Simulated scan of single mutants.
Amino acid sequence: MIEKFDINITPFQLERTMHIYLPDDYYDSEERYPVMYMYDGHNLFNDNDATYGKSWGLSDFLDNYDKKFIIVGMECNHTGNERLNEYCPYNIEDESIGKINGRGQQLMDWVVSELKPLIDNIYRTYPSREYTGIGGSSMGGLMALYTIIKYNKYFSKAACLSPSIFLCMDELNEELESSIIDSNTRIYFSFGTREVRNMDLILDYIGYFDDYFTHYNASSYVYIAKNGKHNESTWEKQNKIYFDFLYGM
């Protein structure tokens, strides 16, 4: 089942809708659940809510999955360029996208200091790092990678689908140099073969991160989606793959 509520993102002073997935028997049990926080929450569950009329089908998938979760889908800012600003942790300028005034760190500071405590208070969660993950695609995938590096003491798992890492590799490298990754960390990367022009370059980038996480005895998994595109249909096909990896034994 999906519940929705609006919440004020205090550093931005903006109202935003949260899309919360709960197991169908949530209110008939006293069970606690792991939590995945995911960007672009409106695109996760229902086609009617999705920006382009196609969701990840995550609700249908989880209804039939062998493990139960709570998903906190954080809707993005739909105004102008604000999604890019909120889903990027750095100030950058790109030829194709233009100038981005990165507000991603402010957003994640709010998530860990206000949103996560609220979710843990309202719902029956396992609040510890071991059971808490982050995920997203495109700019949301970039933010998931940034989050697992910068906020590793809160999140132990990250699903980074088609992450827009090419926008800020230098900045991410600097972030890595000042971070320590817990060995109990799992990171999933994916790209579709039809969404990038230079797959070899992407694999070099991902290989760099893979080596870094391996250095800390963290686990990473790279999935290349054959004929995969930069869209929800491709990401939907990966639901079982990344959940199996992130939460498998």
Rank of each mutant, 00 (worst) to 15 (best):
E3I: 09
F5K: 13
D6R: 13
D6P: 09
I9C: 12
I9G: 10
T10K: 10
E15K: 15
T17C: 07
D24A: 13
Y26N: 11
Y26K: 03
Y27C: 08
Y27I: 03
S29D: 02
E30F: 06
E31H: 07
P34A: 05
P34Q: 06
D40Y: 03
N46W: 11
N48D: 15
K54M: 14
S59N: 12
S59A: 15
S59F: 04
D60C: 12
Y65H: 04
D66K: 01
I71C: 09
V72N: 04
V72C: 11
E75H: 02
N77G: 07
T79H: 14
G80V: 01
R83S: 12
L84F: 13
E86C: 05
Y87C: 07
P89Y: 03
P89H: 03
Y90A: 08
N91V: 09
N91K: 14
E95M: 06
E95H: 12
G98Y: 02
I100W: 07
G102S: 09
Q106Y: 07
Q106S: 15
M108N: 03
W110I: 04
V111R: 03
V112Y: 08
V112M: 11
V112N: 01
E114L: 07
L115W: 07
K116R: 15
P117N: 13
P117T: 13
D120N: 14
D120R: 08
I122D: 09
T125H: 03
Y126T: 10
P127H: 11
P127L: 10
S128L: 11
S128W: 07
R129D: 09
T132H: 09
G133K: 04
G136N: 01
G136A: 01
L142P: 04
Y151N: 04
Y154V: 06
F155G: 00
F155I: 01
K157H: 12
C160L: 05
S162G: 05
I165D: 00
L167T: 00
L167I: 03
C168F: 03
M169A: 09
D170I: 07
L172S: 05
L172N: 04
N173P: 00
L176M: 15
E177C: 10
E177M: 13
N184E: 12
T185H: 00
R186D: 01
I187H: 04
F191P: 02
E195P: 06
E195N: 01
V196T: 08
V196A: 06
N198G: 07
N198A: 11
N198C: 09
L201M: 14
L203P: 08
L203Y: 08
I206H: 02
F209T: 02
Y212K: 04
F213E: 04
F213I: 11
F213H: 02
T214A: 15
T214W: 10
H215E: 14
Y216E: 08
S219R: 15
N227V: 10
G228D: 08
K229R: 14
N231L: 10
E232T: 07
Q238K: 02
D244M: 00
F245Q: 05
